[in-house]
């Protein structure tokens, strides 16, 4: 059975990517199971989708714990605590990372044992097509999926979202496929968990604990600040001090996250640990003192979050 996981963020098309790949497998005659997985968090928050494909009926369900292929649609994710990108990855796990950086760099950085491929952004306005790109790239690594199956799956999944979107998505998916086609068949089907030498679950006998501990209540203030939602950001707002009129209120009041504080000299400071990159501040600033810079560029320029 193939067990495949797509990791991305809300808005990056991971559900669509999973469905395209699932449909391609289905068209190839496989039994298929695919599902997106998301919690209460919204656009920008990490989500994942998974696909199982087998020649036999599939009885497994839910989250894939031993993936054969992991697609990372956003190269900030591996560093994010709790994103779960690396969960269950082993020697047999192939990685496909949507990134401009070299595969070898990722292999080293994440200490990955299996093969690693990267897929550099292919299109202008690429965010809209990232799902299709990831699905196309993933299909290229799977021996049973050819270009025709991929194209049909893209058509089937994108058409209900708007027939005018099909052509562009198709182009992106096929380009991604072409870029990785030399690696066709790299991903192999994983076997089942052994019922003989498995790791016993370390179940415990849960003790009865005092209510202060055992009721789901939060007794500390503002603990949400521990979530580094700044990692959701793909673009960073930068304040040009020379243009800022120190109005003291506009950007900081309109920032939905309260991530802009103003100091005693009325100078606004953006809390990049929590700024989600919505760019409301940029839109509202009357003197156009705020500009948006891609995160990678900002990081390269040494703009430390």
């Amino acid at each position: 059975m193939y067990r495949i996981r797509f990791h991305g963020r809300g808005g990056q098309g991971m559900k669509t990517a999973g469905r395209i790949l699932g449909t391609a497998f289905f068209l190839a005659g496989f039994e298929v199971q695919d599902a997106p997985r998301y919690g209460a968090e919204r656009r920008g928050a990490p989500i994942f989708a998974y696909v199982r494909a087998s020649r036999n009926p599939i009885f497994e369900r839910g989250i894939i714990s031993r993936p054969d292929l992991i697609i990372v649609a956003d190269d900030h994710l591996p560093a994010m605590p709790g994103s779960g990108v690396l969960a269950g990855a082993g020697e047999q796990t192939v990685f496909l990372i949507y990134s401009n950086e070299e595969a070898s760099l990722w292999q080293e950085r994440l200490n990955l044992q299996g093969s690693v491929f990267t897929l550099p952004p292919l299109a202008e306005n690429e965010l809209r097509f990232r799902g299709a790109a990831c699905a196309g790239g993933a299909a290229a690594l799977l021996a049973e999926l050819d270009v025709e199956l991929l194209a049909e799956a893209v058509r089937e999944e994108i058409d209900p979202l708007g027939s005018e979107l099909v052509a562009d998505n198709l182009e992106v998916a096929l380009a991604a496929y072409a870029a990785l086609a030399v690696n066709r068949g790299t991903v192999h089907e994983g076997g089942p968990v052994s019922a003989i030498d498995y790791a016993s679950p370390d179940w415990l006998k849960l003790p009865c604990e005092e209510t202060l501990l055992s009721a789901p209540a939060i007794h500390a203030p503002a603990t949400s600040e521990m979530s580094q939602t700044g990692l959701w950001r793909s673009e960073r707002p930068l304040i040009d001090e020379s243009r800022c009129k120190r109005c003291w209120w506009i950007c900081s009041t309109f920032c939905p996250d309260g991530a802009i504080q103003v100091d005693e000299e009325r100078r606004p400071h953006i809390d990049y640990g929590h700024c989600k990159g919505c760019m409301v501040c940029l839109n509202q600033c009357p003197t156009h003192a705020i500009t948006a810079v891609p995160e990678e560029e900002a990081a390269a320029q040494g703009e430390k979050p």
């Binding site: 289905f26 298929v32 199971q33 599902a35 369900r61």
Partner: peptide
Amino acid sequence: FYLSFTREP
């Protein structure tokens, strides 16, 4: 989730 959002043939 395990059925509601999961596609199967």
